[in-house]
Simulated scan of single mutants.
Amino acid sequence: MNIKIAILRGINVGGKRKILMADLKELMGTLGYQNIQTYIQSGNLIFNADDKLQNKGIEQELENAILKKFSFEVPVIVLSKDNIESALAKNPFYKADADINKLHLTFLNELPEKDKLAFVESLDFAPDQFKIIGKNAFIYCEDSYHKSKLTNDFFEKKLKVKATTRNWKTVLKLWELSK
């Protein structure tokens, strides 16, 4: 069994697309996943999956099951524990004296095409900063993330990939729970 982390986009925000974590946990159990944990109401799952299952297959299965049970679409990105550990090590803004309240991580469901990536990297949103490494967009927001232009929609539209963002405290907690 492999430890996996599923990150759902856009549930329980502003009273829309509501899914109780107990219901989500139960749904995961019916799909055959084990040792299922949830973390906060924004749709973070840590669970064990069969070694043979690939992340993309789990994403599709979970998206389909949510659509069937709750009657709305929810994008899902599935990561391994190693993906989270790699992100922790590669964040260019995460230093010993960093204010982690200003750090965020946007997870991309696939590698962006080189031409789209080059265009996005040429943009400047100072004082906010970002750096895309692999399937991670590391974000530093001088003010609040909600005031930044570096949103899920921005990365999805410009890079033509699915994306979902978590604050750095949540990323650290997901890593801790996946140990």
Rank of each mutant, 00 (worst) to 15 (best):
residue 66 I to Q: 00
residue 69 K to N: 08
residue 62 L to D: 00
residue 140 Y to F: 15
residue 65 A to T: 07
residue 3 I to V: 15
residue 174 L to M: 12
residue 102 K to M: 06
residue 5 I to H: 00
residue 5 I to S: 00
residue 1 M to K: 11
residue 68 K to W: 01
residue 107 F to C: 02
residue 76 V to S: 02
residue 136 N to R: 10
residue 58 I to G: 00
residue 110 E to V: 05
residue 140 Y to L: 14
residue 118 A to P: 04
residue 87 A to W: 05
residue 162 K to H: 13
residue 7 I to G: 00
residue 130 F to L: 08
residue 28 M to G: 14
residue 98 A to M: 07
residue 64 N to H: 13
residue 13 V to P: 01
residue 44 N to F: 09
residue 170 T to N: 06
residue 125 F to E: 04
residue 127 P to N: 03
residue 98 A to W: 05
residue 128 D to F: 07
residue 119 F to Q: 10
residue 116 K to I: 07
residue 4 K to I: 05
residue 85 E to T: 13
residue 80 S to N: 13
residue 65 A to D: 09
residue 19 I to C: 05
residue 129 Q to G: 05
residue 111 L to Q: 10
residue 128 D to W: 06
residue 102 K to C: 14
residue 143 D to R: 08
residue 70 F to R: 12
residue 146 H to I: 02
residue 33 Y to M: 11
residue 130 F to I: 12
residue 108 L to H: 03
residue 75 P to G: 05
residue 46 I to W: 00
residue 13 V to Q: 04
residue 118 A to H: 02
residue 66 I to Y: 01
residue 55 N to E: 01
residue 174 L to W: 06
residue 61 E to N: 14
residue 25 K to Q: 12
residue 103 L to S: 08
residue 153 D to H: 10
residue 59 E to L: 06
residue 108 L to V: 14
residue 31 L to R: 04
residue 61 E to F: 00
residue 71 S to D: 13
residue 136 N to Y: 09
residue 3 I to N: 00
residue 127 P to G: 02
residue 166 R to E: 07
residue 94 Y to R: 03
residue 69 K to H: 06
residue 60 Q to D: 10
residue 20 L to E: 13
residue 35 N to E: 12
residue 160 K to A: 15
residue 124 D to H: 12
residue 82 D to Y: 06
residue 25 K to A: 10
residue 45 L to R: 03
residue 31 L to Y: 05
residue 114 K to D: 14
residue 1 M to Y: 02
residue 46 I to G: 01
residue 100 I to E: 06
residue 134 G to T: 10
residue 102 K to S: 14
residue 148 S to C: 09
residue 15 G to P: 10
residue 64 N to W: 01
residue 140 Y to R: 02
residue 79 L to H: 05
residue 91 N to V: 03
residue 134 G to K: 03
residue 135 K to A: 08
residue 26 E to G: 04
residue 124 D to E: 11
residue 104 H to P: 01
residue 93 F to K: 09
residue 85 E to P: 00
residue 125 F to Q: 05
residue 130 F to T: 12
residue 166 R to G: 04
residue 164 T to F: 09
residue 7 I to R: 00
residue 175 W to C: 12
residue 50 D to K: 11
residue 140 Y to K: 07
residue 79 L to F: 06
residue 28 M to T: 13
residue 139 I to C: 03
residue 1 M to C: 08
residue 8 L to W: 02
residue 127 P to S: 03
residue 119 F to V: 10
residue 85 E to Y: 13
residue 146 H to W: 02
residue 178 S to Q: 09
residue 40 I to V: 15
residue 179 K to P: 03
residue 46 I to A: 01
residue 168 W to M: 06
